[in-house]
Computed example of a mutant assay.
Amino acid sequence: MTENSSTDRGWRGSQDVWLDAAYAALVEKGVDAVKILPLANALQLSRTSFYWFFKDRKQLLGMLLDRWEASTTGALVAASRDYAATETEAMLNVISTFLSDELFDTKLEIAVRAWAQQDPQVLERLQCADAARLAALREMLERWGHGAEDADVRARTIYLVQVGYISMRVEEPLAERLERFPSYVEIYTGKRPPQQEMERFMARIGYRGAAS
């Protein structure tokens, strides 16, 4: 059997298999659970197979942080630059990213914020992410005509409310949260989204309940 056979690859797993297992351990138990031997045992793979895909645990942790940045900061920055015909539509694009883990990985965000409390390097990376997210929100608001100081205050209001939802692990029915969206948008932008815009927004996210 050659080194490149499918059986051999299956025995070792793959980089994604190891990374997914590390992700699950991080979000469920914290960074101290992301260790090579426990991951190998959970995957029923040999410990040495880990080293086919990663130099060491540090590289694995670094790739987890890369995944976090892509699925949180990357998603939010992209949403702030999405096409929108109006400022209120642009704001709906942004705050809708926090509706599900498919758009903004809240579980990973919580885990990384906990990790940062015990690792200065991760804390520095988290602070850089916070700064990048705030900058993206400020830039979006400035594009819609807000002055620098006004955009900064509004950006902080948006961001601190949404991160507060995550940090406090707020659980509420989607319908209840969506009912607040027009008021959130009005607070964040100074403008209330028209009914037709809310209806288009609800349709876009696949929500079939009554529009606010």
Rank of each mutant, 00 (worst) to 15 (best):
L39Q: 06
A40V: 10
M91E: 10
Y159E: 14
M91Y: 10
P38D: 11
E179T: 07
F98C: 08
Q59F: 09
G164F: 03
T86W: 14
E109I: 03
M91S: 09
A155C: 14
M63H: 12
R113M: 08
L43M: 15
K58S: 07
V161F: 08
A79T: 10
V94F: 04
E199T: 03
L92G: 06
A79M: 02
S183Y: 07
R67Y: 10
A21V: 10
L45A: 15
L64M: 10
L174I: 06
G164W: 00
A75E: 10
A210R: 06
W144I: 09
D130M: 06
R138T: 13
G209W: 14
T2G: 07
W115H: 08
Y188Q: 03
T97C: 15
G209K: 00
Q195D: 05
Y159V: 07
A33D: 05
R113T: 09
S49M: 10
A129D: 07
I95P: 03
T157N: 05
D150Q: 09
S5C: 04
G10R: 04
L134S: 12
K55V: 05
H146K: 14
A25M: 14
Q44I: 03
A114Q: 02
A135R: 13
R200V: 02
R138Q: 15
P193V: 04
K58W: 03
R156K: 05
R143H: 15
Q118R: 14
T97H: 06
H146G: 00
V122N: 05
E179R: 14
A135C: 07
L178N: 01
W18S: 09
R156M: 14
I110H: 05
D150G: 01
S6C: 05
D152W: 00
L178I: 01
G74R: 03
D119A: 10
Q59I: 09
T7I: 04
L60V: 01
L39T: 08
S46Q: 13
L60G: 05
A111C: 09
L160H: 03
D130C: 13
Y23H: 13
Q196R: 02
R57W: 09
A40G: 12
V170N: 13
A129K: 01
G62D: 10
S71L: 02
T157K: 01
L19Y: 11
L92V: 04
L126C: 12
N41P: 00
A24N: 07
A78W: 12
R9N: 13
E199I: 02
D56M: 06
R156Y: 14
A85R: 11
F50V: 01
T189I: 02
D101S: 15
W144F: 15
A25V: 12
Q127E: 07
V27P: 08
A116N: 13
T189K: 00
A132S: 11
T189A: 01
R180K: 07
S5Q: 06
R177C: 13
A114F: 04
D130Q: 15
Y188A: 15
D119L: 04
E197S: 06
I166E: 02
F201S: 00
A116G: 14
G145W: 04
